[in-house]
Design a binder for these strands. Structure first.
Lengths: 219, 219
DNA sequence: TTGCCTAACTAACGATCGTTCGGTTAGCTT
DNA sequence: AAGCTAACCGAACGATCGTTAGTTAGGCAA
């Protein structure tokens, strides 16, 4: 339509295994796209139904309410994000440097792979009632807590140097969040390159020591 | 109401001189608060009218449509933001280091001083038609272009070291944007401290040289 | 007082909102 | 062939949406 798009991505990707032509999945993908592009309140149930190739009444055969659709998207999104960063950090070495790189690469990777899911589950979360949002809030806190723990540990060991660890959490988390809005496969840098760049940014932001062993290479 | 607030700020601050009890200003401040907290589509004209202490019809004596209210908020917000960073950079010295510090401090300062204005003018902008959003888009490009120019200049002079200047623009801009969502006067750090911290983060992210003259002090 | 202007109001328009109810279809089991 | 189940749809409910037309109240000039 117009120049002012909410996010650069144009295709709604949901987790593998959930996309298929089954009714419930079609509705979820359609809602993902419309909620991402227009916001939850800006996309009507009729819009979602039309995009899913279904009549409005059919949606209520799969979801109890419009809010339940959003709750499911938020839960799936935060679940995948937390799963990604947690796995990446666990599989990295014990060094704080490695952990931050693993976290940021996974974090940015989620926002480039699932931009619409990231936008919806982060910027529409406030609509959910306390009950429907509870599961998502837990995951959000876990993700943020993990990053905070990595940074605090690195500061204590002297690897990182920041005045306030939480401010670094906010900065690193914030710059990663925004990636979902401007990244698209058509961007001049690949998702891998963006993730690498942001990981380097995070290391610099934390004033991280150069790697302990030889193979050092500056950004 | 619930835990899940869209942003931490609770009071709607508009630019000085626009707040007063005059009808048009009351409506604008009320719309600012509700659009920030619930989103443009999530806040009805009746809600805005009630918050402003007037009847719905009165709003149309001051603004042609609901969209015009949003357009005005977006314009004011981007105008103030651009004015702030531009002035700060111009008043700083010619050194790239000083310019980045000035830019980031002003950028973060805007987001801590006018969090609701920042949230609305950045995350509801996509609703505006091409016509109504045109003025705002120009200002947005100017702001981003200014940051990009500062970084490019610093890279050319060897002060900064980044592989892709635009990626640094995205990272620095993104981390500043998010401040509007979590900052509140009740936060443990003052707005000044947050701005200082983010300026330091930006310098580190760009791998800036230590200041050329003596008075160097590490973060 | 009269007339006018501004600003706010009451009341309502048609459209669209989320949601529900009852019925229809398609496919499988027996 | 008969019966069951799950999925889907047509039609409509009351509520709320953005917006407008017409009216009323108050201040000021004549």
């Amino acid at each position: 339509m117009s120049i002012n798009r909410r996010l650069a991505a144009t295709t709604a990707r949901l987790l593998p295994g959930l996309n298929p032509s089954e009714g419930s999945g079609r509705v979820l993908v359609a809602a993902l796209k419309l909620f991402a592009e227009r916001g939850y309140a800006g996309a009507s149930v009729r819009d979602v139904a039309a995009a899913a190739g279904v009549k409005p009444a059919t949606i209520y055969a799969h979801y109890a309410s419009k809010e339940h659709i959003l709750a499911e998207l938020c839960r799936v999104g935060h679940d995948e994000q937390y799963r990604g960063v947690r796995t990446a950090v666990l599989e990295s070495g014990g060094e704080s440097r490695e952990q931050i790189v693993a976290y940021v690469r996974a974090h940015v990777g989620f926002h480039t792979t699932y931009p619409m899911l990231a936008v919806v589950s982060n910027s529409e979360l406030h609509v959910l009632s306390e009950d429907l949002g509870a599961a998502t809030f837990v995951l959000r806190r876990e993700s943020e807590g993990l990053l905070q723990d990595i940074i605090k540990r690195g500061v204590q060991s002297g690897t990182f140097k920041v005045v306030d660890p939480w401010l670094a959490v906010a900065a690193i988390g914030g710059m990663g969040l925004r990636v979902a809005y401007w990244f698209s496969p058509a961007y001049k840098l690949s998702a891998e390159q963006v993730a690498d760049g942001y990981a380097e940014f995070a290391l610099r932001l934390l004033a991280a020591d150069r790697p302990p062993v030889a193979r050092a290479q500056a950004g």
